[in-house]
């Protein structure tokens, strides 16, 4: 008989096996009461997000001036030829 057929046959029998009887409710309750509350675990994340936002606003403040330098060479392309200084 093909080995896979035997496996199928064994599986059919194995499905009738009863699982052990367990009562985990007390242990589950003990474990969930030991889990630290969300407000405590989120505090470092909040501080990190605040520092990141502050750093990003400082960078944005100083880089605003640089934006005009980036735009300037592009705008020259659209200036009429007569107005472009040759030297």
């Amino acid at each position: 008989m093909d080995s896979l057929k035997i496996i199928e046959k064994l599986a059919g029998i194995a499905r009738r096996e009863p699982a052990p009887k367990l009562d985990v409710s007390a242990d589950v309750l003990r474990r969930i009461t030991e889990i630290p509350s969300e407000s405590v675990s989120l505090l470092p994340l909040d501080i990190f997000a605040g520092v990141s936002a502050f750093a990003a606003s400082v960078i944005a403040f100083f880089s605003t001036g640089g934006w005009y330098y980036i735009m300037d060479p592009l705008s020259r392309l659209f200036v009429p030829i007569g107005e472009i200084p040759l030297w």
């Binding site: 699982a19 052990p20 009887k21 009562d23 409710s25 007390a26 589950v28 969930i32 009461t33």
Partner: peptide
């Protein structure tokens, strides 16, 4: 309410044990 959760655990623990077995 942890007692309510304990009721859920007791209701489904046999079903989950059968899977984990």
């Amino acid at each position: 309410d942890h007692d309510a959760y304990a009721r859920l655990v007791r209701r489904y623990q046999s079903y989950i044990t059968a899977i984990m077995w």
